[in-house]
Amino acid sequence: MDFNATLLILDSTLRLSTPLLLAALAGLYSERAGIFDIGLEGKMLAAAFAAGAGASVTGSAYAGLLLGVLVSVIFGLVHGFASITARGNQIVSGVALNFVAAGATVLLGQAWFRQGGRTPQLSTDQRFLGSEPNFAAELRDIPIVGSIVSELVLGHSLLVYIAFIMVPLTWWVLFRTRFGLRLRAVGENPAAVDTAGISVTVLRYKAVIICGALCGVAGTYLAISQSGGFNNNMTAGKGYIALAALIFAKWKPVPVMFACLLFGFLDAAAIRLQGAELPVIGRVPVQFIQALPYVLTVVLLAGFIGRAEPPRAGGVPYVKER
């Protein structure tokens, strides 16, 4: 594999990691606050539909983003209401919302746009597309370093940069702010937070809202940055891969980024490795590479590579003692 092909794979790794990273960070806020969320997939899908529909109706990518985030936050609030206020089962709520999103997006898409569940094809100015700054062309003349910078660092869509900026920001929020400390505490020992006179309910609602917003950006990226409109079931399991990445990274922001890059790389490589012969191993079935993120996560959960300890109060509704 030559230098340019490697660069191309790394470039598509970045693009494919972006939705995973946004969704995994979304899950991080929620699960760190003690709300398990297997509805990342559904929220992304609903957001992708809202963003695709919004951008095509209003003609503005930003309106698409706003709608995507809004719809995803509404889904998050429903999940929050079920998990926090109604003290329901968080897994069941996530499953339910995934179903609702999978059905409603296609149903409404077909009823409103009549294109088999798709939203209309967007023009380039209705999408978030990367534009290379003027000096990129000059940079490319510098050997190696120049092409690395121009290929990998420059020219991405705005949402890609947002995703990667969210990593240090999330770390700072979680580990350097009062809010972050409380958020983590509410996922480990909500009774202690309650005793300190801080509302468990309010904190957890804040967490599911942040989770919804980030999933909204992830879905928006899929619909109006990576593609030119919403497609039937366009998340295709990305929400679950993001969940796997979150667990694989042991609920920590910077490792989450590396896990997402790894899974994004596997995805990018799978497309290129299809049918290719590898030295030593021979021909690797593409399905094996597709299953690798899940296999790796199970191996990690089994405690063979370190140990994944979820937030202690995760999945348990908080009941104030009377």
């Binding site: 429903v78 968080q90 339910a96 179903f99 609702v100 059905g103 149903l107 077909q110």
Partner: peptide
């Protein structure tokens, strides 16, 4: 109405009869 309506109703039943049962 497409067949996806089934998926929506299914999701809503799971939501209200399952997660929001209380």
């Amino acid at each position: 109405i497409t067949r996806d309506m089934i998926v929506v109703i299914q999701g809503l039943v799971i939501l209200f009869a399952g997660a929001l049962e209380n």
